[in-house]
């Protein structure tokens, strides 16, 4: 098959024809490999909602960067990083030692940060800028932004590969880890830092409202397909890659906004998996229960 005929295929031609589509795809791949495994752990730690709150907390930080330097990648990243870390410390503490109701306090973080962020951007910016921070600009990723996404993804993958054993133990038996090792706090805060880094990556590509989507949706979807931890990570990444590529293509062919279309594609895969996945609520109920008897 020649290059010319490949270029005619609707699944491939947009990526061959347009640089911005290739960049968008590369950005999505980076997010899939970096953010989705983190999302699997967020889900298993029952912290998906905390992830959502942190992703919104990034906005006012990034907005301060925006007020100082406009739509500047380094300044908005730095601001988002500081704000994200601050809220991650608070939210992590709340999720672990919840004397007050966790969902309420997370909703509080979420509302305050989102409105503060929107207000700050509106002080100086246009509605276009506002749309940019809320829904991202995956079709306008420049070299610096791509490099940032790739760096964050690489850091995540390397850290997870090194720390997988201790992170897994910290997830299912934190008090045991605390007894046998000094690493427990390092792991917890290291993990929260990875969450923040990946949410900032997601913020640049998909915006503050959608960033957590590529983290949480593929992770939740993979639970319908496989059981144990390593397959969950791999299937999650695969689903994120497929879903975001599909979203990009659909948004291109039907002229839809890219960020929300990507998240909706991931959502569609989630709903489909719920119906046909072997561990989904439907198939697991109609399947004979022989596998529990041994």
């Amino acid at each position: 098959m020649s290059i010319e005929s490949l270029a005619d295929l609707p699944l491939i031609s947009p990526f061959i024809e347009f640089g911005f589509m290739r960049r968008a795809l590369a950005g999505c791949l980076a997010l899939s490999f970096g953010a989705t495994p983190i999302g699997v752990f967020l889900m298993l730690r029952r912290m998906s909602l905390a992830g959502d709150a942190i992703s919104h907390a990034i906005l006012p930080g990034a907005a301060v960067g925006y007020l100082i330097a406009g739509l500047s990648l380094p300044m908005m990243t730095l601001g988002g990083l500081l704000a994200g870390i601050a809220i991650a410390l608070l939210a992590g503490g709340v999720a672990r030692h919840s004397v007050i109701k966790e969902d309420t306090s997370l909703a509080t973080f979420y509302l305050i940060s989102l409105s503060a962020g929107v207000l700050m951007i509106s002080l100086r910016g246009s509605n276009i800028d506002l749309l940019h921070v809320l829904f991202g600009s995956v079709l306008a990723l420049d070299d610096d932004a791509l490099l940032l996404l790739a760096t964050f993804a690489s850091i995540s993958i390397v850290m997870l590969a090194i720390g997988l054993r201790v992170l897994v133990l910290e997830c299912y038996d934190p008090s045991h880890l605390m007894r046998i090792s000094r690493l427990a706090p390092v792991v917890h805060y290291g993990f929260m830092l990875l969450v923040v880094l990946n949410l900032i990556g997601g913020f640049h590509a998909l915006g503050t409202l959608m960033a957590v989507g590529i983290m949480v949706l593929p992770a939740a979807t993979s639970r319908f397909w496989v059981e144990s931890i390593v397959p969950l990570l791999l299937v999650g990444v695969l689903i994120a890659v497929l879903g975001s590529a599909a979203g990009l293509l659909i948004s291109y062919h039907f002229d839809l906004p890219a960020g929300p279309t990507i998240v909706l594609s991931l959502g569609a895969i989630y709903l489909l998996s719920m119906v046909i996945g072997p561990y989904g609520p439907i198939v697991s109920r109609i399947r004979p229960r022989w596998h529990f008897s041994h």
């Binding site: 298993l44 897994v168 133990l169 997830c171 299912y172 038996d173 934190p174 008090s175 045991h176 059981e227 144990s228 931890i229 969950l232």
Partner: peptide, 17 residues
Amino acid sequence: SSVDSSFPVTVRDFVAM
């Protein structure tokens, strides 16, 4: 038991710790 048994870890990996 402080173990979160909803976490998908196998008996083998659990004991190995």
